[in-house]
Nucleic acid binder design. Structure first.
Length: 258
DNA sequence: GACGATGTTGGCAC
DNA sequence: GGTGCCAACATCGT
């Protein structure tokens, strides 16, 4: 579910808790923890930001990091279910962490841990020169590279497929052999698709919602993702699905030649 | 009921 | 550094 636009939407919908204090943390399923959260109790939330797909609560001391995995949700004052694994009681209201597949993780850290520090640049901030240089240095398949969080932070399966389609690049293309012109198209496509997706408050493929329980609408603007067999919006050819880097990959065989 | 697919990451072997 | 495979888990569609 949650890639950069979805995480950004969640972070924006959480801004109302800035300034509140965490009074108590109840963990019901330890699997979703990395280390202990005890030290976060009693701390005040100074600000909430996004880095890649991580939600970062800056506390008056240290950080609370939340990664939503595939099905994680942070809900403000929502309903407690069998998939609610952590309950943050604030001085006003509660935040629930709910995650059916339990691939998400929560951790407390004084400084930002290496897994956050080693993330690649933000795709909406990187300029073309930096993007092109990094692209050219890699010999891997372009889709695998887009999914690599140390290359760019925040792109996942949906937006990789959508950006490659919009740039007319085959998902298996060798990154180092992409021409400057196509690299420019890709850089623009990545920024455009992410910007439009944020404006639509993300893609709700199965059950993604923001912290107020609202769905996104960008799934209606997907041109290839999960549109296998449907006609391409550009040329009418049937959209195909294949595996690239072990991930389901959707592309137009006409518009995205190797 | 079986089987395969699903938005993510991390570990391991090579 | 890169690739390929598997693992974690629950749910949904065929």
């Amino acid at each position: 579910m949650p890639e950069l636009p979805e995480v950004e939407t969640v972070v924006r919908s959480l801004q109302s808790v800035a300034g509140r204090r965490i009074q108590n943390i109840e963990v019901r399923q330890k699997r979703i923890l990395r280390g202990k959260l005890d030290a976060a109790s009693g701390k005040r939330i100074a600000s909430i930001r996004r880095r890649g797909k991580f939600i970062v609560f800056h506390l008056d001391e240290g950080h609370l990091l939340v990664h939503l995995g595939m099905t994680g949700k942070l809900l403000l004052d929502g309903e407690i279910t069998k998939h609610t694994h952590a309950i943050f009681t604030l001085d006003r209201g509660v935040i629930l962490y709910t995650d059916s597949r339990q691939f998400g993780r929560i951790e407390y850290a004084r400084g930002l841990p290496a897994r956050v520090e080693s993330l690649g640049p933000e795709p909406l901030e990187i300029g073309f020169d930096g993007f092109h240089t990094a692209l050219h240095a890699r010999k891997t398949q372009i889709k695998a590279l887009l999914l690599n969080q140390r290359f760019l932070a925040g792109i996942g399966n949906i937006y990789a497929d959508e950006a490659l389609f919009r740039a007319g690049i085959h998902p298996r293309a060798n990154a180092s052999k992409i021409s400057k012109v196509r690299s420019q198209k890709l850089h623009a496509a990545v920024q455009q698709v992410l910007t439009e997706a944020i404006a639509a408050k993300g893609s709700s493929i199965s059950d993604y919602v923001d912290s107020e329980g609202r769905k996104g609408s960008f799934q209606h603007q997907h041109l290839v993702y999960q549109r296998t067999g449907e006609p391409c919006s550009q040329c009418g050819a049937a959209i195909r699905r294949t595996l690239v880097a072990q991930r389901g990959t959707h592309f137009c065989p006409q518009c995205q030649k190797r």
